[in-house]
């Protein structure tokens, strides 16, 4: 599903973000990526949806060879992946339903198919009552649910999440986590960068720890392992 072989990333400003990372993630896995701030977690995540390119090494995601991927093929890669962010990245002037519909318009579904699918995924995240509200009328947790619904819309094989609970209070965070859990239960692979020690420790899933651009720990049923 996701394969990285000796991946290096140096940014143009000289920052050495990743130093020879190799990792293999199988279909249906739930993987937490942990580590201190600035360790390279975000770069690790961004490489998977080709927001950044590796300086060296091989990356395969959903059968796409990332290093050889032509610019015009990037949209195809991204349609096969759902991405969720700490800051939700919703369009402020669109309603919840329109935000989700947007991801479906991109792949050219008919308006009827879009309406059906939007209602379906918003129901999955428990927001069927609030589909016509603007992001500003929703709570943080609800906004993140809309973002999750959007990432689900295309029925992706992988969902990649970069600190999805970073802006949420503990109770809300748990709600979002249970949502990801349910999505994973249906077979969707999930890779999540997080600082939420409590959640990582209680879920007991695969944990990959990155420090200074290197994987220092990769455990099945691991724990958070940091004191912060």
């Amino acid at each position: 599903m996701i394969e990285m072989q000796d991946v290096w990333k140096e940014y143009p400003n000289g920052t050495q973000a990743l130093n020879g990372i190799s990792v293999h993630i199988q279909k249906g896995e739930f993987v937490y990526v942990v580590g201190p701030s600035g360790a390279g977690k975000s770069t690790f995540i961004k490489l998977m949806y080709r927001e950044v390119r590796p300086t060296k090494g091989h990356i395969f995601v959903n059968g796409f060879n990332i290093e050889r991927l032509k610019d015009r093929k990037i949209p195809l890669l991204r349609r096969s992946i759902g991405v969720v962010f700490q800051d939700f990245k919703l369009l402020p002037k669109l309603t919840a339903a329109e935000n989700v519909a947007f991801a479906l318009e991109v792949i050219g579904l008919s308006p009827r198919q879009i309406r059906k699918r939007v209602a379906d995924v918003l129901a999955q995240v428990g927001l069927e009552d609030k589909m016509n509200m603007l992001p500003s009328q929703l709570s943080g947790g609800e906004q993140q649910r809309v973002a999750v619904a959007r990432s689900l819309a295309n029925n992706p094989a992988v969902i990649i999440a970069d600190e999805p609970t970073g802006n949420l209070d503990p109770d809300t965070s748990w709600g979002i986590m249970r949502l990801f859990q349910r999505i994973n239960d249906r077979g969707t692979t999930i890779v999540m960068a997080t600082h939420n020690r409590e959640i990582v420790n209680s879920m007991r899933r695969r944990v990959i720890a990155i420090e200074q651009g290197t994987i220092v720990r990769d455990e099945q049923r691991g724990n958070y392992g940091y004191d912060d």
Binding site: E51, P75, R78, V83, K89, F102, V106, I107, R150, N154
Partner: peptide
């Protein structure tokens, strides 16, 4: 940015 992330050409 968001359009690009959801795979718009």
């Amino acid at each position: 940015e968001i359009m690009k992330l959801v795979g718009a050409t």
